[in-house]
Amino acid sequence: MKIKTSSFRVRPFKNPSGQIVYQVDGFINGKRIRKNFPTRKEARIEKDALELKTIQSAASNLRMVGTHLSDDEVRQAESVFLRIRGDRRTLTQLVDFTLDNLKEPETHKPLADALTENVAHRTAEHERGLISDAQLSTISKHTELLKKISPRRLCPT
């Protein structure tokens, strides 16, 4: 998250009394800040303090939290929370449901073998009159294209 620093400036200013002072001028959250200082050094210190205050107000929703997660895991968690914002279920409920219902397949086979089996199954359906010649032709063409695109890919069985 990029935080924009304010545009405070320090400039010499002549008071109505004729005295030269250094004025710090800028905005915080739309409110104009103007302060006069007798020396440039004091004005610069105030300018730095005001810019720090601006950064802190812009980042007020950020906080430091100690965690065992890696940077990538923290980004993933933030992404998930943004995706489920407004959902009535909690992240824990969603993860529990997924772990209970989504089982990793015990074996995998090459995609080419699975596609060959699918074409054989579709050919048998064609012979029984369940699919047309055009459907079988389209399935065969798409299967060959898939085999060329990803010849070494595995699929669950």
Rank of each mutant, 00 (worst) to 15 (best):
I20C: 01
Q76F: 04
A134E: 15
N36M: 03
N101V: 08
R88K: 11
F81I: 08
S57P: 02
N29R: 11
E106H: 07
D100I: 00
H142Q: 13
E104A: 12
L69H: 06
D133R: 12
D87S: 14
L146V: 00
Y22I: 01
L130D: 05
L136F: 09
P110D: 05
H142I: 03
N61R: 13
Q23A: 09
E117I: 01
Q135F: 01
L102H: 05
S6G: 14
S6V: 03
A49C: 02
E46I: 01
I20M: 13
G129D: 07
K31L: 02
C155A: 13
S137Y: 09
S137T: 15
Q56S: 12
R122P: 00
R11L: 11
R44T: 05
N101C: 06
R34V: 10
Q76M: 11
E144V: 08
D133Y: 09
V21N: 11
P12A: 14
E104Y: 14
A43Y: 11
L136M: 04
A114T: 05
V119T: 07
Y22H: 15
L99N: 07
T90P: 05
I33D: 00
E51I: 03
T143C: 15
E78W: 09
G26R: 02
I84D: 04
T54A: 10
T116Y: 05
V21M: 15
F81Y: 08
K14G: 00
T54L: 01
R152L: 06
I84F: 06
V95F: 11
R9T: 10
Q93T: 10
G129Y: 00
K103L: 13
R75C: 01
L99V: 08
R44S: 02
I55C: 08
T107G: 07
P151K: 07
P156Y: 02
N118A: 14
E117N: 09
S132Q: 05
N36H: 14
I149F: 08
K35C: 00
V74T: 06
I131S: 05
S150N: 15
D87E: 14
T143E: 12
D100Y: 09
D87I: 07
F81M: 10
H126V: 03
S137R: 13
S17P: 02
A58T: 06
K47H: 04
R88W: 10
M64N: 07
G26Q: 08
R40L: 07
R128C: 00
S132W: 06
M1R: 11
K35W: 03
Q76Y: 06
R9H: 06
D25F: 11
Y22V: 01
G18Q: 04
A112T: 15
D71W: 02
N15T: 13
A112M: 03
Q19Y: 10
S137N: 09
H142C: 08
V24Y: 12
R32G: 05
P156K: 01
A134I: 12
V119C: 09
T92W: 01
F81T: 03
G26K: 01
L99M: 13
L69K: 10
R153M: 12
T98Q: 10
H126T: 05
R40C: 09
T138Y: 11
L91R: 04
E144M: 08
